[in-house]
């Protein structure tokens, strides 16, 4: 799995690519943990490059959402392809996240002018 990061003012966009499964999810978890630790409180996770996600990946994102809520931060997910959306839905997690279609829409939701 590759993870790209872009910082747009105070919004950090994290874009993993490939599979988020039990093997690779620890890599994503570590990065998100580091960024939270480093003070990032406004975050977009762009899932457009994800082929599929298993519950290991869902756990990481659920953990991130909980932490963000506790820290009064903002988290928006975007770019969900069908396989990713289905897994979120089957797990009943979709209502727990702020979800937008595109990265620009996610940025708009966070009150930042899109690029």
């Amino acid at each position: 799995m590759q993870i790209r990061e872009v910082e747009l003012d105070d919004v950090l966009v994290v874009a993993p690519a490939g599979r988020v499964d039990s093997t690779s999810s620890t890599q994503l978890e570590q990065l998100l943990f580091d960024r939270l630790d480093g003070g990032s409180r406004r975050m977009i996770v762009d899932l457009a490059g994800i082929d599929y996600i298993s519950s290991a990946g869902l756990r990481v994102l659920l953990w991130l959402a909980k932490r963000m809520q506790a820290e009064k931060g903002d988290l928006v997910l975007c770019g969900m392809g069908e396989p990713v959306r289905q897994v979120f839905e089957l797990a009943g997690l979709l209502p727990l996240f702020a979800v937008e279609g595109t990265r620009d829409e996610a940025l708009t939701r966070l009150g930042r002018k899109s690029t």
């Binding site: 290991a56 659920l62 959402a65 909980k66 809520q69 506790a70 089957l90 997690l93």
Partner: peptide, 16 residues
């Protein structure tokens, strides 16, 4: 979300 336990998801996803 604050009280949600993170477990049993994998099995549910597999079954569905």
């Amino acid at each position: 979300i604050e009280e949600r336990k993170i477990g049993g998801l994998g099995v549910a996803i597999t079954r569905r």
